[in-house]
Amino acid sequence: MRKWFAVLALVGLLGASSTLAQSCLASAKANGLTVGTSPDYPPFESLDKDNKIIGFDVDLINAIAGELGLKVSVIGQSFDGLIPALLSKKIDVIAAGLTITEERKKSVDFTRPYISGPNVIITRKETSGISKLEDLAGKKVAVQIGSAQEKIASGVKGAQVKSYNLYTDAALAVNTRQADALIVHRFVGRAFLKQYPDLKIVAELNQVDTGLALRKDCGDLRQAIDAAIEKLEQNGKMDELATKWFK
């Protein structure tokens, strides 16, 4: 009799363990996908006149969700809080024009890259003498807190790094002469140039890859998203989104 009780107890434990260890993909299918972003990085993500989050990343994650049959909720917050929110399971995915770096790979997993391009240096049109990274020595360089560009600026000996919560504030600082230069992804830089005609791109820097970030224990969800991205690349949808937001 005790043997049967032991078997039943083991089955019960296995069932409980299976419930607790529900895969990230199964959880997303059951509860929807919560996506975190920082809507101050056009054209990847920004706020429209109605304070609705829009941008390439929003369209991309919705297209991915369509392929996987998932409901999506996109929430905005500060950029430097995105990875902590992911690790504490407040969100399932980061879609924020996130540069794939070796440092970030230590704490999160990335999908396959969906955008590649260089970082650039932006100054006011009246500014001279800046044509490469080393020329930022002695200059006030605007970046966003926690960004890959902040790390680049911090590596320039003598640069005065000014970090802002929002990249839109960093761009405004250059436009209003509170900073001398801005380091940002080229696609984002082009968006800021449309907003501030007195700014210009003076140098292209390193090529970077951009991806979505997930927790390391969500390999099944990452694989599903990777497959969806690949399909969007093959069926032309990715090109449509790139044309819409980046051209």
Rank of each mutant, 00 (worst) to 15 (best):
M1R: 11
W4F: 15
A9H: 01
A9Y: 01
V11R: 00
G12L: 10
L14A: 15
G15L: 13
Q22V: 14
C24Q: 08
L25R: 01
N31H: 14
T34V: 15
V35P: 03
D40K: 03
P43S: 02
F44P: 01
E45T: 15
S46L: 14
N51R: 13
I53N: 03
I54P: 05
I54E: 11
I54W: 02
F56E: 06
D57T: 03
D57W: 04
L60S: 05
A63C: 05
A63V: 05
I64L: 07
A65P: 05
G69V: 02
L70P: 04
V72A: 08
V72Y: 08
I75H: 00
I75E: 10
I75N: 02
G76F: 03
F79G: 10
G81F: 10
G81S: 14
G81C: 01
I83E: 08
A85Q: 09
L86W: 08
S88P: 02
K90L: 10
K90T: 08
I94T: 07
I94F: 07
L98H: 10
T99V: 15
T101M: 10
T101Y: 07
E102R: 13
R104Y: 01
K105E: 14
K106A: 15
K106C: 05
K106Q: 15
F110R: 03
Y114K: 08
I115Q: 11
N119T: 08
V120M: 08
I121L: 09
T123F: 07
K125E: 14
T127S: 13
I130K: 04
K132Y: 03
A137G: 12
G138L: 01
K140T: 13
K140V: 13
V141S: 04
Q149L: 02
K151H: 12
G155K: 06
Q160M: 13
Q160H: 12
V161Y: 08
K162T: 12
K162I: 15
K162G: 00
S163V: 09
A170Q: 06
L172F: 12
A173R: 03
R177F: 11
R177D: 15
Q178L: 12
Q178Y: 11
L182N: 09
L182G: 07
I183S: 07
R186A: 14
R186W: 09
K194A: 11
D198K: 12
D198G: 13
D198T: 13
V202W: 05
A203D: 04
E204L: 05
N206W: 08
D209E: 14
T210A: 04
G211R: 00
L214C: 06
K216Y: 01
D217Y: 04
R222H: 02
R222K: 15
R222L: 06
A224Y: 08
A227E: 13
A227V: 01
I229C: 01
E230T: 14
K231H: 09
K231T: 08
L232G: 00
Q234N: 14
M238K: 03
M238I: 07
T243G: 02
F246C: 02
